[in-house]
Design a binder for these strands. Sequence first.
DNA 1: TCCTGATCATTA
DNA 2: TAATGATCAGGA
Length: 226
Amino acid sequence: MSLKPQRPHSIDELFARASELAGQRFADLAAAAQLPIPNDLRRDKGWVGMLLEHYLGATAGSKPTQDFPELGIELKTLPVDANGKPLETTFVCVAPLTDLAGVNWQTSNVRNKLQCVLWLPIDGRREIPLADRVVGSAFIWQPSAAQESMLQRDWEEHMDRIALGEVEHITARQGVALQIRPKAADGSALTDAIGPDGSIIQVRPRGFYLKTSFTEQIIRQVFHAV
DNA sequence: TCCTGATCATTA
DNA sequence: TAATGATCAGGA
């Protein structure tokens, strides 16, 4: 384990480094990084993701790009239960609500981020103290043709509604693999969106999320069991 | 019990 | 405000 992580220069190097994390306790990783470990994640929801990003040398910051642009790879932690089933949906990116002219699936942020993902399953069981939870086995995934068309269908359906000014009628129930839900600091956060009559309205910002049923299929496909 | 809608921390 | 990292928690 490197105490002073550097940016990986190849996918192999990144994958090897991620694989070394398997079985390691969050307490040990936090100690080596000299980071305080919270009692739970209620006030530190992104703590595990940030910790592992640190170890793998991902670029800090809030740019809407892949975590490793030069490798074309996005890093995602995936909290799972004792059976390896995902416990949470997976945030992908913010959903554009205005200026949709020329926006299409091929150039979308969703497709870009999901083209190649380094998944890092993590123990997400709340009944286990955070310090005692461990990292799982990393794997690299690229959507199959079937998975991508599923994502594309969902994405186009969501974007059609947004373009038609129906953003406020979008529910998390819509979409087979990809859903849209609020994504904000709190209820006071507002952003521009297209209204029913085509004018600009203020709404809660939205994000694209992968449903747990979809990430569960990915896990099954890789580990051949659940 | 599960899942949707709400929320938390941080940086720029 | 908007982007990143996500999980919480109560109602269906």
